[in-house]
Amino acid sequence: EPREEEAEKYIKRANGDYDKAQELAKKDGNEEIAEAIKEYKKR
């Protein structure tokens, strides 16, 4: 799923820090991806 791939990219950029990844996504205006990262975190 493209959303998950995007989320993974942010998580990698944030060195595995989900909260930081979420912030990066929000900064880029990717609210949807920020949500996907939140879902990811719950797994």
Rank of each mutant, 00 (worst) to 15 (best):
N15E: 07
E4T: 11
E5I: 13
N15Q: 09
I37C: 00
E35C: 07
D19M: 06
E23L: 09
K20F: 12
K38W: 06
I33H: 02
Y10D: 03
N15T: 03
I11Q: 02
K9P: 02
G29S: 04
E35N: 11
E1R: 14
E32N: 09
R13W: 14
A21W: 00
Q22V: 15
E1T: 14
D17F: 02
A36K: 13
P2Q: 13
E1W: 14
E6C: 09
R3C: 12
L24N: 05
K12T: 09
D28K: 01
R43F: 08
P2R: 15
Y18C: 12
P2T: 15
K27D: 09
D28G: 02
N15D: 08
I11H: 01
R3W: 15
I33L: 10
A34S: 06
R3I: 15
D19N: 09
K38P: 03
R3N: 12
D17Q: 03
Y10T: 03
E6Y: 06
D28L: 02
N30K: 15
Q22R: 07
A34Y: 07
N15I: 04
L24S: 05
E8V: 11
R13Y: 08
N30R: 15
E23Q: 09
E4R: 13
K38V: 07
K12I: 07
E5R: 13
Y10V: 04
A36V: 13
D17M: 02
E23M: 10
E23N: 05
A36W: 15
Y18G: 01
E32C: 12
E31P: 14
A34D: 02
E8M: 13
K12M: 08
D28Y: 04
N30Y: 12
Q22E: 11
K27R: 11
K9C: 15
Y40S: 07
E31S: 09
K9I: 11
R13H: 07
G16L: 02
I37F: 01
K38E: 11
I11Y: 02
A7D: 03
A7Q: 04
G29I: 01
K41A: 11
D17C: 04
P2V: 13
R13A: 15
D19S: 06
A14H: 00
A25I: 01
E6V: 08
I33R: 01
A14C: 13
K42F: 07
K41N: 04
E39T: 05
K27M: 14
E23V: 07
L24H: 04
E31C: 12
E35Q: 10
Y18A: 04
A21F: 01
A34F: 05
E35P: 01
K38D: 07
R3L: 15
L24G: 01
A7R: 04
Y40L: 15
G29V: 01
K12F: 07
N15M: 09
K27C: 10
E39H: 07
A25L: 00
K20M: 12
A25F: 00
R43N: 11
K26W: 10
E5D: 13
E8I: 14
A14E: 03
K20G: 04
E23F: 06
A34M: 09
A7H: 05
I37W: 00
E6Q: 11
G16W: 10
P2G: 14
R3Y: 14
K38Q: 09
R13F: 10
I33Y: 04
D17L: 01
A21R: 01
Y40Q: 10
D17T: 01
I37Y: 00
E23S: 08
I11N: 02
K12R: 11
K9S: 11
G16E: 03
K27W: 08
E23H: 06
P2F: 14
K42P: 04
G16A: 01
G29K: 04
A14P: 00
R13C: 15
